[in-house]
Design a protein around this nucleic acid. Structure first.
Lengths: 346, 346
DNA sequence: ATTAGCACTCAAAGCCGAGGAGTGCTAACA
DNA sequence: TGTTAGCACTCCTCGGCTTTGAGTGCTAAT
C-alpha cells in the first residue's frame, strides 16, 4: 500500500522529528537522508503521505510532522524484532544493581521504575505484583485483645496482607486457632478464584457451629485478596515531562502531572487489557483518557513462574524514541521475573 | 520598634500582595486603605520599611513586595490568636466526611490531605502515624514453610508491620510458638525504646538455648519498628502550585515538584524538629532546602491519646494566605486525633 | 510633618519589518 | 511519465522600536 520510497520518506520524517522535535521540511530530508531524489520529489511524496493520513502540517508554511497513524505504522512495520537488540552487559548490570539494592518486593519494583526512568528519560510507571494472581502460602488468624482478630494472608511471592477484624460474638483463642489451622490446611496453595469455589462448599460442613463467624470472615479474606488497594502504582521521573518541548505549555504539563498522580486513572490505563504477555504499545489517540491522547505508553509484563503478576513501562509524548524504549524495557521483563524468583526462593 | 503607622502600611502591603500577587505601589495603598495620609507620605514610610528590611522592590519603578521578615512579623505579631477563629460547623462537616470515607488509618490521613488541599488550594502533605511512637499491642511469630518465620507486630493504633525472616538453623514450630508467646508476654505494652532496654537483659535468661536465633530476631523487630520506611508521606494537590503566578516559570515549577516528590527530603523537612505540639510555620529562607526557600510550610500535629504521632500541613509560595491556612489546619488537628481514637476503640 | 508636583525609570505591551523555512504550482526535461 | 528547477506565496519568528503607565524619589511649598 505504501511504496518503497514513501516508506523511506516517512521513516526519514519520523527519524528527524523524533530527534529534533521540529516539523520536517522536504529540503532537510533530501539533504540529510540521501534518497537520491530532489526536494521537489520529496515534496510530492510528502503531499501524498499527508493525504493518506501519515503526516500533517501545523500550518501552511511549516514542515510536516508524523501522525499517530505514522507512529503506528512505524512501530508495526519498521521496528521488526531484528532491529531490537538487547545489550546483555547492560542487562546484567541492571540485574546486579537491582539485586543489590532491593531487599523487599516493593523496593524491587520501585527501583526498577527508577532505573527505567533514568535510562529512558521518560516517566516510568510500574504495577506492583498483584496478590490475587498468587497462591496463598499461609493464612493465620491471630486473636488480639478483646474481640479483635488479626487475619494474616501470606502470598507465595512473600507479600503479606493483614486485616484486623472485629467480632460481634465471643470466641475463645483456642477456637480461633482451630479455625486458623483448618483454613491453613484447606486453603494453602489455592489462588483467589479457587478459594471462592472451595470455601462455600467445604468449610461449612466441619464448622457448622461457627457458620455466622465464617460467613463474615470469608468475604473479608476474599476482599483482602481482591481489593484494588493491594495494587500499588509506582512512579518515577514524573518531572521528566518538563524536558520535552511539547510540554513547554504550562497547562499541558499541569494536566499531565495531575493525570499521572491519580492512582485510579493510572490503574485503569495499566489494567485496561488483562495483562497480556509481552510488550504493549499504546499511541496517542489510542489512549482512553483525553489527557494523554498525545502521549504514548509502552509497557511490558513481568512474571512469577509462569504467571504474569505485574507490569512496568514508560509514558511520554507520542514523539517517543520507540526503539530505545522497547529495548530498555526488554532489559527489565526477564530480569524482574528472575530476581523475583530469586528473592523468594532465598 | 515599628510605629503604629508603619505597621498599618506594612499590613496594607501584605494584604494587597497576598491577594493580587503584584508589587504594591504607594498610590494603591493611599487610595484603597484609607490611612488618611497621601501617597507621598506612604512613599516615605515604604522607603523606611525597605531600609528596615521588611519590603523590597523587584526593580526601581515597581511597587514593593513583602520580604520573609515582613511575613514573619505579620505571623508573629499581627495574626494573634483572637483573629484565628475556627468554623465549628465546617469542623464537624469535615469530621463526618472523614469518618465516613476512611476505613483504615492510612485512608484517614490520605483523605485529610485531600480535603486540606481542596479547602486551602495549596499542596497538602501529611505524615502517617509513626509506629515507633506507639505501644506494642501484639507480637507474633508464625512459622511458614521451610525455615521462614513471619514476624508480625501490631501497634496500639492498629498499625501492623510484617517482616519475613529466614533462619539459618532448624527450629520446630512448637519452639517458635513458645518464643512467640514469651515475646508477646514480655513485650506487650512497651514502646520501642522500652523494648531496646528490656530485651537484652531479660530475654536471654529463659531462652539461652536459642540465643543465636534471638540475637538475630531482636534487631529485626527493633529495626522494623524504627525503620523510616514505616513513615509514609501523603501528598495531595501537587499540581496546585501551577496556579500561582510565582510558578509560571517552568524551571521553578519543575524543581518544586521534583522536591515534593522526593520522600526523603520531605521527611527531613517534616521531621526537622521533633514533633513539637501545635502549629508551626516556616517561612521562605527559614527552610533548610534551597529549592523551597521561597515557599512557606505550615504544619500542625495530631495525637493519639497524649502522644503526638503525626503531622499534617500545607506548602506553598511565601505569599500564602497564612490566616486562612492556619484556620483550616485548626480544623484538622483535633478532628484527626478524635477520629483516630474512635477508629481504634471501635 | 505632610503633601503636591515633577522628572525620571523601567517593565510590559504593541507594532512593524526583515528573514527564512517551507509549500505548491508550473513548466521544462530525460 | 516521473523528476526537477524555479518561483511566487504563506506564515511563523524574532529583533528592534515606540508607547504606555505604574511607580519612585526628590524638592519645595504648606
Amino acid at each position: 500500500m505504501l511504496d518503497e520510497r514513501k516508506i523511506k520518506v516517512l521513516c526519514a520524517v519520523i527519524d528527524s522529528y523524533l530527534r529534533e522535535a521540529e516539523p520536517v521540511g522536504s529540503r532537510t530530508i533530501s539533504k540529510e537522508y540521501n534518497l537520491g531524489v530532489s526536494s521537489a520529489t520529496i515534496r510530492n511524496e510528502m503531499s501524498d503521505l499527508e493525504e493518506l493520513g501519515y503526516l500533517s502540517k501545523p500550518h501552511t508554511s511549516a514542515g510536516r510532522i508524523p501522525s499517530d497513524k505514522a507512529y503506528r505504522f512505524y512501530v508495526n512495520n519498521i521496528l521488526k524484532e531484528n532491529k531490537i537488540q538487547i545489550d546483555i552487559e547492560k542487562k546484567e548490570k541492571i540485574k546486579r544493581v537491582l539485586t543489590r539494592e532491593s531487599k523487599e518486593l516493593d523496593d524491587l519494583i520501585q527501583n526498577s521504575a527508577k532505573i527505567l526512568s533514568a535510562i529512558t528519560s521518560y516517566t516510568a510507571l510500574a504495577l506492583s505484583p498483584q496478590i490475587k494472581k498468587m497462591k496463598l502460602k499461609h493464612i493465620q488468624l491471630v486473636p488480639l485483645d478483646g474481640r479483635e482478630i488479626l487475619i494474616i494472608l501470606v502470598g507465595d511471592s512473600g507479600i503479606v496482607k493483614n486485616t484486623i477484624f472485629r467480632l460481634d460474638q465471643d470466641i475463645s483463642p483456642e477456637q480461633v486457632e482451630r479455625i486458623s489451622n483448618f483454613f491453613n490446611h484447606k486453603l494453602k496453595g489455592l489462588t483467589i478464584s479457587d478459594i471462592r469455589k472451595t470455601v462455600t462448599v467445604e468449610v461449612f460442613r466441619e464448622f457448622y457451629e461457627y457458620k455466622n463467624l465464617l460467613d463474615s470472615i470469608i468475604p473479608i479474606i476474599i476482599n483482602s485478596l481482591e481489593d484494588n488497594d493491594n495494587v500499588e502504582v509506582y512512579l518515577d521521573g514524573v518531572t521528566k515531562i518538563f524536558d520535552f518541548p511539547e510540554y513547554k505549555d504550562m497547562e499541558k504539563a499541569k494536566s499531565f502531572i495531575s493525570f499521572i498522580e491519580d492512582k485510579d486513572q493510572l490503574l485503569n490505563v495499566l489494567l485496561n487489557n488483562t495483562l497480556e504477555e509481552g510488550i504493549e504499545i499504546t499511541i496517542g489517540e489510542e489512549n482512553i483518557y483525553d489527557t494523554i491522547k498525545d502521549c504514548s505508553l509502552i509497557t511490558t509484563t513481568y512474571k512469577l513462574g509462569d504467571m504474569i503478576i505485574g507490569k512496568i513501562g514508560v509514558i511520554g509524548p507520542t514523539r517517543m524514541d520507540y526503539l530505545m524504549v522497547i529495548s530498555s524495557l526488554k532489559l527489565f521483563s526477564d530480569n524482574l521475573s528472575e530476581i523475583l524468583e530469586m528473592l523468594l526462593k532465598r
